[in-house]
Amino acid sequence: MADPLIYLLDLVVFVGIYGILSVSLNLEFGFAGIANFGKVAFFLVGAYVYAILSALGVPFYVCLIAAAAAAALVGFLVSLPTLKLREDYLAIVVLTTGEILRQIVKSEKAIANGVWGIAVSPAIPTLGMPARVSSLVNIGLVFGCLLVCFLVAQRLANSPYGRVIRALREDEVAAEALGKNRAKYRAQVLALGSAMTAIAGGLYAQYIQFIDPYMFMPLITFTVWIMVLIGGPGNNWGALLGAALVLTFDRGANIIKDRVQNLPIDPGNLQYILYGILILLVLFFRPQGLLRESRLRTRALEKVGRGRDTAQGQRS
């Protein structure tokens, strides 16, 4: 790219978008122990709802809110058949939901031009301004949304609600014996996580200014999982760190791909082989990720002064 600064700013925008995704997955997986293998489904819902509404001239913040609401609804509906079953059933259902939704937007021309895709206008028009300015505008928008999502996730994690979902993750029988309804909490967390994911989807659509069904492959889900697993499940800062690390690595691989000729192995393939190996290494040697699960912070614990070593559920 001609302007290296633009390249860097572009990376920052992506870190923001994926940061929202990984914070939302961290909420679902890290705190609540929900195996959402269909992140891309909700990302797709967000991007398409945003694209369709913004084409009708709806202001961007309304588009984002509508996208979040639509995905929350989808997340809630998808979770219904599997709420009371074991973790793996939900994983299968959300994973396949992503495949079906992609098929729908691919086959139905009426939704958003089918396989041909649709152009999306940017949230804040920066026509005629230098590319750097428009990147900075996007960074402001994306990180504003990220900040909101992050604060929500952080507050939730340290609230009584967060303690309940962590308890359900650790020992559902014990938590249910205390009268906590597992199904209800799971549905709520999945709806909230999906809403955040959809906001990331909307931001992505307006930033790229184009969407088509092939941009929503299961690869996205897997990338977000890598971010959370590397960063440290149950730690929101870890989720952000994971997003930044993985995207930087991704960009590095792209630069090598562009610069270096005659590699013995196509870097596009190599990159995902390495991701797979990396995940296995993390699972084997550091399942808690780079950053440990964040300690519980409540006013009461701080007063007692024992917040460091009590009431902390260790990850199994």
């Binding site: 122990g33 195996a35 973790e87 994983a91 797979g276 190996i277 995940i279 296995l280 699972l283």
Partner: peptide, 14 residues
């Protein structure tokens, strides 16, 4: 079980 599923996806990618 979630870790095992993730590991299977990792093998799938490899």
């Amino acid at each position: 079980i979630i870790h095992l599923m993730v590991a299977s996806i990792a093998i799938s990618f490899i």
